[in-house]
């Protein structure tokens, strides 16, 4: 029994059908708990006032926006190396979800930036990087949509994902070099948890778990949809040939 068994579309659908309700329930419970906990039952930050409550949306969505791209990169690599169709379709399924998370991170960042930095938009390195990431998502989805042949589309988009990842990383450093920025590094990032007080940290963890579960549930659901859509196309094509 290896993980590659689930590369079989039928097995993948059967397995995810079993898991999907549980993951969805977990996402729902975590998101509702975390957001209510964060919104109603956490104190104000002495510096940021009530805007600190935005952290429960901003940080998880930003985190998952990047992780979704990384997941697409891994799925693309699996497609290139092992040619499992489910993998290519999972990458395709994840892209819109990642785009939405990027949008949430950008929107909450702008709404948070307005009172804190006095401006909706600043060409801060992290904001700029997310804008560039957003453009990469758009290009990736546009390429999927533009190509008719499924295998060609999977091949081309996976190479674009690979090349795009390198350039996205390069852009990240270029943007850092280009502008110093306003983000207070440590207090907002996860690797420096000591800077976030426990009262904010625990609900934030629950929210992150909720976003992760939501992402997994959506990717499972959308991958199933892609598999079925592809099967429908294949059946129609076979019928036309016959």
């Amino acid at each position: 029994m290896s993980i590659w068994e689930y590369a079989n579309p039928v097995k993948f659908i059967r397995a995810t059908d079993r898991v999907l309700p549980w993951v969805s329930a977990l996402a729902l419970v975590c998101l509702v708990t975390g957001l209510i906990w964060g919104f109603f039952f956490t104190p104000e930050d002495y510096r940021q006032g009530s805007t600190v409550k935005i952290i429960y949306l901003h940080v998880p969505s930003a985190l998952m926006a990047i992780n979704a791209w990384i997941m697409m990169l891994v799925a693309s690599l699996i497609w290139i190396v092992r040619r499992h169709h489910v993998s290519a379709l999972a990458a395709r399924a994840a892209a819109p979800v990642g785009t939405v998370f990027t949008l949430i991170a950008l929107a909450t960042g702008a709404l948070w930036g307005q009172p804190m930095w006095g401006t909706w938009w600043a060409w801060d390195p992290r904001l700029t990087s997310f804008l560039i990431l957003f453009l990469f998502y758009l290009g990736y989805m546009a390429l999927w949509a533009a190509i008719e042949n499924d295998d060609t589309a999977a091949d081309l988009t996976s190479i674009l994902c690979l090349v795009g990842s390198v350039f996205a990383l390069l852009s990240r450093y270029a943007v850092n070099f280009w502008n110093q920025g306003l983000h207070q590094g440590a207090s907002l990032s996860l690797d420096a948890e000591e800077n976030v007080a426990d009262v904010f940290w625990y609900p934030l963890l629950v929210c992150i778990a909720g976003f992760v579960a939501l992402f997994i549930a959506l990717v499972f659901l959308r991958t199933q949809t892609e598999i079925r859509a592809r099967r429908a196309r294949a059946l129609l094509a076979r019928e036309r040939r016959a």
């Binding site: 546009a142 795009g164 996205a168």
Partner: peptide
């Protein structure tokens, strides 16, 4: 749309 983000760095 594909090339412009790659031009950024």
């Amino acid at each position: 749309l594909l090339v412009l983000p790659l031009y950024v760095p």
